[in-house]
Design a protein around this nucleic acid. Structure first.
Lengths: 110, 110
DNA sequence: AATAAAGGTACGCGAATCGCGAACAATTTT
DNA sequence: AAAATTGTTCGCGATTCGCGTACCTTTATT
């Protein structure tokens, strides 16, 4: 599973084996082994690959099929930052109102 | 890192080593090795452990340190919805501007 | 077109580490 | 206090890791 995911992601980004190997400081053949299924990456490598590809280890490992987590803002079940500064709950409520209003206006425009 | 997480989660749930070993069909000593750091679980085992504990592999592996993930909005590395409707990239840019402006105003109030 | 450079694939080798069983200590249950 | 359960550690054989190397294919340069 992880080999398939790695292969797909790398091709989508149009990265070479060598580039990824350099990023993780491993041999090209080592990374190639991950994609071919000939080898399994270490847990540390899995972590680094998830960060490099901008995805989650859950996706790489096949726990989930979603490359990027989808978050429903109104559920408030996570922490968020902008410019490194935590977004307060009040601010999130304002954000939601902002978007709702904007959408409402868009609707009437048509 | 994973050893710490496994140990914490198991104790919180008050499960025995044997119980988890049985669930994953591995030897007690094998799982014990995961917690002590003497061994590293296979990728498959990590997946199963995440499901068993009702958490994510990202949490087990320490990609995310908080139970609730923190997301930096300006990185645009995830999908977001409000009222089930996808928030577009443009909207996110507007949200960021909105909060930045609001913060700027707050600053001058003092 | 010929050559060089870069990208991709396959495999042998030594080293690292896996999973298991066993032995034993610590704790809980009866 | 004896028995049962739980937790810890370690040696062993087997697996598999990561690297280097060799080789083929594709792309870039002249």
């Amino acid at each position: 599973m992880i080999s398939k995911r790695l292969s797909e992601l790398r091709k989508k980004k149009q990265w070479s084996l060598q580039y990824i190997a350099d990023q993780l400081n491993i041999a090209k053949s080592t990374y190639a082994g991950y994609e071919s299924g000939y080898r399994q990456p270490s847990l540390e490598a899995v972590k680094e690959l998830a960060v490099l590809f901008g995805t989650t280890t859950d996706y790489l490992l096949g726990v989930t099929d979603k490359e990027q987590p989808t978050i429903e803002l109104t559920h408030l079940t996570f922490h968020m930052t902008i410019d490194g500064e935590p977004v307060t709950e009040d601010e999130i409520i304002q954000l939601i109102a902002f978007i709702r209003t904007k959408r409402e206006l868009e609707k009437h425009k048509k």
